[in-house]
Structures are given as structure tokens and as C-alpha cells.
Design a protein around this nucleic acid. Structure first.
Lengths: 330, 330
DNA sequence: AATATGAATGTAATGGATTACATTCATATT
DNA sequence: AATATGAATGTAATCCATTACATTCATATT
């Protein structure tokens, strides 16, 4: 493996000159530049980034922690993050946390040990204290899911309004018994979506029925399970609002297995507008988040932090949209 | 940011001793060890991996190149890769290539510039020459998709037999006009799956009809489009074999949109057994690959290469399985 | 008591690239 | 002709942790 020394020797110049050529720092005579380039080609030289990174004390790598890459919700967001990163000369490292604190901490180590210049958290399980500590010392942005009790920039949508819009749509279709499939976690989005659901019921003069609120884990199976639960009730709901498309798709399956029709017997609304929402039968009404843009903004704010341009933390909310499809209207 | 020097000074020992403590190299008096540990805690010291990596000339990072993280087929494989990597003290960097050669090359740079100790290629677009060159100089393993004309270890299934098994199943159900949705690429898996399809037709005395072979891009939409094409024929097929579940799910959609029944009017078989195969309506008959194990083996062989334990390249084939569901039998 | 042994610790070189500072030398200025 | 200027290039320090080799010193061996 050739080093910069080898190149310098081969080209008959000093390492400083080679380095100047590598970094286009001007101030190198064209003739010299060519000699050096030739030596680089001849030796098939590749600068060793370990040396460069140590000296510059930066890696131009960004950690992106997400619970699970197989969750289709994240893929567009990641695309946005990646595009902005590459445009700015950064590379990203995707890390599956499995929603496991320990695993998350393993990756945080990489940041703390300087193998990454900054980190994006998609649905962190970290405690308030850990987050605070992290945000104080390193560039961090929370994406989609966030804690509002820490001073760390976050990019997301207004989940409260989004949930209200979804449930209001069902009310508009004449539904009175509306069930909700939520999740038992402490995510702000969950709290806000539940609050939005309850608020609309209240505004519509419908009493909240605890039996119509069930909990899943964002996944297909949990949607199937909880929907079955609803269907076994004497006084079945006529509509189901799930806080993830995957759970909504599970609910659709349960309804169809029970021999009921969608949306005639039971309407279903999801959340996220993943690709599959328009592939399933019937197509799913759902809340669409501007996933790609969320990713772009997230990365942009992170880069600003890395460059030391931004002083204080910011709260960014992007627009959402209710996409009405066959699972709620004929 | 504290360095090892600061710790040494604070603990009143030399940097060598601190390093020994950090690396549990024995030969450090318990008392000294504790003094050092205390200094580390007091200064909140984190070893700078840039220094360590440069010195050791390794990063314990593995690049994993895959076309698209949103393809659910890959998520289980990645899980296997990750688990084995972590068990061996490696971290992985997932990289979306978008099946774009240029993008792939950007990531290869990271390997060549020593920011990674090895690389796993999932469906590389690289030319034979590039792959050869890469395999000669760096630890590489091909996962699932591979070129057999380069001497680089690969882990996959026997796609020829798998396709034969799938089509034979359709023949067994009495089908005579069997369409295939393949892809126009040079992947060996594609070639082998097409060969398996044709072989079974031949063995069954059915003449191959070029009109029954269409091409998609593994995605849902292309399945929808090509299936519509088949359905518009006068002499429609009675079964469709797609080389990805996503395309099969698209085909299912097309069939249902045409008002036809599955499997009565048209049977559909997919390939990969992604999660959604058992979530869609009707559930999809498909070829199941041992995705998690493929990931594990891939990583194990890569680590062996990194350690310099393996001499020659190897061809590993794992068992597949045809999973029969409602899309082909009532 | 003299010497050998080896555990514990320290000193300094090392890895590769960058960069502050120093030097050289041709040209411009007076 | 003497001096100033500044482009081009070189020298050596630097980033941080690891580790080969050196040193110290207590204990064991004869």
C-alpha cells in the first residue's frame, strides 16, 4: 500500500506538495501537479483516510439511528438524509437499533469516540438525561420522533393536528364508534395522536370508550390481533384509526377474515403513507408525511450544527396531508 | 476533549500504562488500574478511535452495499450480517446504492481509503474487471447475487432448482399456460430462474411462448403493469410466476382489478417470502430463502478473510423452500 | 551476598496526512 | 544594483493511541 511518502519520493517532491495536489490547494505549479498526479497513478495511491481524519479531527461520516431498516416508513426519509449528506461531502452510516437501548449506546460510542461527526436519532429510547448530555457535547438532530423536554433540534410533523384530521374524516363519513390502535410507548407522537383522537371525539359529542383503544407495536401482527379484539365485541366499532399503516393493514386483514366489507362495514385509516398503503386491497386512507423533506431538513440542520453555524436548538414542523382512499370511502 | 495524555497526567502514570488499562493487556497492577480508571471517569475520557485505527491500521467497520434498504427482502439478511458482526466486534455501515454504479464506487472508495476493513456486495453492478480488482486487494463477499466468473466467495441459494420447484408446483396444479415475470438484468439469479422455468416447461412437454415472458424491475408497479399485459391477451395465462414477491403482489392486484379470482382463474407465485407475502390477500405462494442464515454465513466468511484465515474463494449454497399459500391452492 | 528473573512501568517511535512556518528564487521596484 | 515581494516548495510539528524496547525494582536462586 503506497503512502504519501512513496508518492513524494516517486515524484521527487515533498509530502507537502503531494498533499497540496491532493487537496487542490492551488499554489502548485501545473508542471509539478502533473508529475505528482502521474506518480499517484503509477503507484495506484489512495490517500489513507485514517491519517487524514486524525489530523483534521473529522470523519465526514454521519450516524443515522433507526429502530429497523425494514420499516418502510423510514426508507424515504433516509433517502432525503443521504441526498443532502452526499451533496455536502458526508457519508451516512445506517444503524439498526432494534429499539434496544443497549444497541443504541453501542452506536453512540462511535460518535463519542469520534468515528462520526454527528448523529441523527429517529426514534430514540434514550432517557432525558442521556439525550441532554449527548446534545450538549455533540451535533444531534431528532428526526420524526423527539422529546420536547430537551434542547435538541427536531424535525417532524404536527401529530396532534394530523390525528384530528384523520378522525374528523371518519366522523365526516358518519362514523360514531371509532376505535383506535395506538402503541404503549412514551413517544410524543403517540401521546399527541391519542390526544387528537380524543379531542375530536369530544368536539363531536362522542364519549370516549376505553374499550375502543387498543395497543400494538406498529407492526402488522399487532394490528391483526387488536382488530380481531374489536371485532369480537358485541358493539363493534364501524371504523378503526391505526397510528401506523402496518397496523392498519393488519386490521384490514382481520376485517376481511371476519367476512366484513371495507369500508361498508368497517372503515380503516392508517398513518405514514408507506408504499404498501396503495398496494393493499382496498387501498388505505392514511396520513402522509413529507418523508423525503423531513430527511433533507434533518440533515441540513445537522450539518449546520457541525459547522458551528447554528446556536440554539430549533423545532421544525412540516406539513402533512390526509390521503383519502378506498378503505374509508366507496 | 481529554486525550490519553491528559489521563496519564491526571493518574500520574505514563500513556503506555493508560493504554494497557484501556486494552486490558494484563501486566498492570490492580492499584494502578484503579487510579487510571478513576482518572478516566473524572475526565470523562473516551479513546479517540481515529488515533487507534490509524495505529492499528484497521477500523472494525464493514461496508454493506445493497440496492435499496426499502426492499424488504434485505432486512432479514442484514440482521444476520449485523448479529455476526457485533458478536465479533465489528460494526456495519449500510449503504444504499440505488443500483447505481457511480454511487457504488463512492462507497468502494471508503474501503480503498481504509475506512472499512471489508465489504459485502448484495447486488453489485460492477463489471467483472472491477470486481476482480477489488477481490484481489480487499476482503469481499458476494451475498445472494453474484458473478460466478470472478474468484470471490459468494453465499446464496440454488436459483435454478428453486425456480423449477415453483413452476413444477404450478404444473402439478394443472396449469399449462404459465407466464413468467422476470427482469432484464444480467444477474445470475435471473438467468437461472428463467432457465429453471424453461426447463420445467420442456420437461412437461409445454412449448415456451415468448409472449408469456415479460420483464419488470422487481418492484410492485412493474408487476402490476406486466400482469395487465398478460390479462389483455386473448389466450390468457392461468398462472403467473414472478421472480420477486413485490412483482407478484403487483400481479395479484392486476388480476383482482380485472375482476378475476385467485387462484381459481389465475394462480400467482412469487419469490423471496418477504413479510408482506403473508399479509396480502390472498396470501402468496413463494420461494423462501433462508435470509437470516445467508446474512450470517456471509459475514462469517468475510471475517475469515479479514483475519487472513481463508485462502481461496468459496461458493456457498443454502437450502430454499417453496411455501404454498392461498395464491395457488384453494 | 551476588546474580538472575520477571513483573510493572516508562520512553519514544510509529502509523499517514495535514499544515504552520521556513526557505528559495525569480521578478518587480526603486 | 540593492531590496522588496510573493509564488512555489520544503521541513518538521501535529493529531492520538499503540507498542517495541528500555528501565526499574522487588523477589528468588545459588
Amino acid at each position: 500500500m503506497a503512502t504519501i511518502q512513496d508518492v513524494a519520493k516517486a515524484a521527487g517532491v515533498s509530502v507537502a506538495t503531494v498533499s497540496r495536489v491532493l487537496n487542490n490547494s492551488g499554489l502548485v505549479q501545473e508542471e509539478t501537479r502533473e508529475t505528482v498526479m502521474e506518480a499517484i497513478r503509477a503507484l495506484n495511491y489512495q490517500p489513507n483516510l485514517l491519517g487524514r481524519n486524525l489530523r483534521r479531527m473529522e470523519t465526514r461520516m454521519i450516524l443515522v439511528l433507526l429502530p429497523n431498516i425494514s420499516n418502510p416508513f423510514y426508507s424515504r426519509i433516509v433517502k432525503g438524509i443521504e441526498d443532502v449528506a452526499h451533496k455536502n461531502g458526508y457519508n451516512i452510516m445506517l444503524c439498526n437499533t432494534d429499539s434496544d437501548k443497549m444497541r443504541e449506546r453501542i452506536y453512540l460510542e462511535l460518535l463519542k469516540k469520534r468515528l462520526s461527526d454527528g448523529i441523527i436519532l429517529m426514534a430514540s429510547e434514550l432517557s432525558r438525561e442521556e439525550l441532554l448530555e449527548l446534545g450538549k457535547n455533540y451535533p444531534v438532530v431528532q428526526c420524526c420522533e423527539y422529546r420536547e423536554d430537551v434542547e435538541i433540534t427536531h424535525v417532524s410533523i404536527d401529530n396532534y393536528s394530523a390525528a384530528k384530521k384523520a378522525v374528523n374524516h371518519l366522523i365526516g363519513q358518519g362514523h360514531k364508534r371509532i376505535a383506535m390502535i395506538s402503541c404503549k410507548n412514551n413517544f410524543l407522537s403517540t401521546v399527541q395522536r391519542e390526544a387528537g383522537y380524543k379531542k375530536v371525539l369530544e368536539e363531536s359529542g362522542i364519549e370516549f370508550d376505553p374499550d375502543l383503544l387498543a395497543y400494538g407495536d406498529y407492526g402488522y401482527k399487532s394490528g391483526l390481533r387488536t382488530a380481531k379484539q374489536f371485532l369480537s365485541m358485541q358493539d363493534k366499532p364501524t371504523a378503526i384509526f391505526a397510528i401506523s399503516d402496518m397496523m392498519a393493514i393488519g386490521a384490514i386483514k382481520a376485517v376481511r377474515q371476519a367476512g366484513l366489507k371495507i369500508p361498508e362495514d368497517i372503515a380503516v385509516v392508517g398513518f405514514d403513507n408507506i408504499n404498501f398503503a396503495s398496494m393493499c386491497e382496498p387501498e388505505l386512507t392514511t396520513v402522509s408525511q413529507p418523508k423525503y423533506d423531513i430527511g433533507c431538513y434533518t440533515m441540513e440542520f445537522l450539518i449546520r450544527q457541525i459547522k458551528g453555524e447554528s446556536k440554539s436548538s430549533q423545532a421544525i414542523f412540516l406539513e402533512h396531508e390526509l390521503i383519502i382512499r378506498a378503505s374509508t370511502v366507496k
